[in-house]
Design a binder for these strands. Structure first.
Lengths: 256, 256
DNA sequence: TGCTGTCCCATTGTCGACAATCCCACTCGG
DNA sequence: CCGAGTGGGATTGTCGACAATGGGACAGCA
């Protein structure tokens, strides 16, 4: 599941403005998760009737939500041919990680300066999850937890722009992984260096944290581009369910 | 007019894959330009029937294009209330420029390393335009040219992610300007520091270039947040035409 | 006079339908 | 046997229509 930014009202007035997600929001989240999870294979075409049917909505709202992912660069829209999941091949990995490093290092410096105790704790917690996940040897769980550490760190910066970009980048990293592994595999991307990241962050050591992040990302690029590393674990069953099944959208009136 | 990224095939095979913009693409560009030009005032509601009518399309494609801008953060969609142009007030300017600095400085270092001669020349040309624009004393033209220098520099990095973000950031900077100036003004941003930027870039001096950019952006933030600076020029006529007029979409089969 | 409740209109959210386009399999001719 | 031409089926692109929601004006009551 892709972590999604939550609007956090900084101060606490007596009443905070109520905000509910639109149907398009819900569909977009569902779609993004589907791409992230590999339920929609990279490069594959997306049939609107089928998808919108599974979500329990008509093609109209579905197409609107899809355009959001097109803007994000996760989907591609070819005029007469419809939608398809993008590929991120070898040639683009370097640029992807340049962008990712830019966001993460900037966020790191800001977070070191301004993060609250609970935000620091959140990063630590995300790292704990990663450690637990690593024990399961489940490559996908590890990948999720890995990315979640990075996402949580960016979230700790409190910068909405960086967090928005990071939310998309996470999915693109996964797409790159899928693309390079030739058919729906998730690299077993265990990284020692995450310990450094969390420790440098807790120590509020900006330069050290940036270095740790850079090291981690460089390592990730190497693993990704390593030709058929043995460190890769492939799933015969690419998708959670054989058919790309999306949860139906129900106008949830959720209680906080 | 907002500069839009052009897909540039790096190598030159005998034939490059033909690609044409979808209708949604065209509408999105038109909408983005309208926001950028202030034709759609910040905070104002957007009436779908009116807008789509002016563009000569039905509400369907228009709504799809609008969702792209929602994803960018330029428009806001409130469930029962429809679309409106976002505001970027004092409290968010700092974060906006943090994000902008991240993109621009990263792009700068990459561009210094990898930019070709023509890309360097493009930045120089953009700067020349700025100098010319400054002579006209037209605040909006100066603003356009100013932002275009920065955009061209990011484009010179060749990184699609950075360029995509920059394309949105430019509009958000303009939105911030509109929001803070209380009704459709464009700050007269004299650009001494732009000379440094171009010179450091031409000299391929990465650190110097980054410093120049930082100085320029810090200066811009100060100008923006300076309470009612005298350096501001306000237009009584906020919009190019009194009614937000959008160019009709014609399925252009454009020749390169 | 000030507040509450109600009605109406404008606008949005959603859907189904039609036409245009594209892909694929088949057929025909060299 | 291989290529181009052709037709059918499926899918997308676009539109108009209907129901639902929200905002504002007006009337009623304390």
């Amino acid at each position: 599941m892709v972590p999604t930014p939550r609007v956090s009202r900084g101060t606490a007035p007596s009443l905070s403005p109520v905000t509910r997600p639109s149907t398009v929001d819900l569909i977009a989240v569902e779609l993004r998760n589907a791409v992230y999870a590999g339920a929609l294979p990279v490069g594959s075409a997306i049939r609107e009737v089928e998808m919108s049917g599974q979500l329990g909505v008509s093609r109209g709202p579905f197409r609107e939500a899809a355009q959001r992912l097109v803007q994000e660069g996760l989907l591609r829209s070819t005029p007469g041919r419809g939608l398809s999941v993008v590929r991120i091949g070898r040639d683009r990995v370097h640029e992807l990680y340049e962008a990712r490093a830019s966001v993460e290092t900037t966020a790191a410096r800001i977070a070191v300066e301004r993060a609250t105790a609970v935000e620091v704790a959140a990063v630590r917690a995300a790292h704990d999850d990663l450690v637990v996940a690593e024990r399961t040897e489940d490559a996908r769980r590890v990948g999720d937890a890995d990315l979640n550490v990075h996402w949580t760190l960016v979230a700790a910066s409190g910068n909405p722009w960086l967090l928005r970009w990071m939310t998309t980048l996470i999915v693109e990293v996964r797409i790159a992984s899928f693309t390079l592994s030739e058919e729906y595999a998730v690299r077993k991307d265990t990284a020692e260096s995450h310990v450094d990241i969390v420790e440098r962050f807790e120590a509020r050591d900006a330069d050290g944290l940036v270095s740790a992040i850079r090291a981690n990302l460089d390592d990730a690029v190497l693993r990704l581009l390593a030709p058929e590393s043995v460190e890769v674990e492939t799933f015969d069953e690419p998708r959670p369910s054989s058919a790309p099944r999306l949860e139906p959208i129900t106008p949830t009136f959720s209680e906080p």
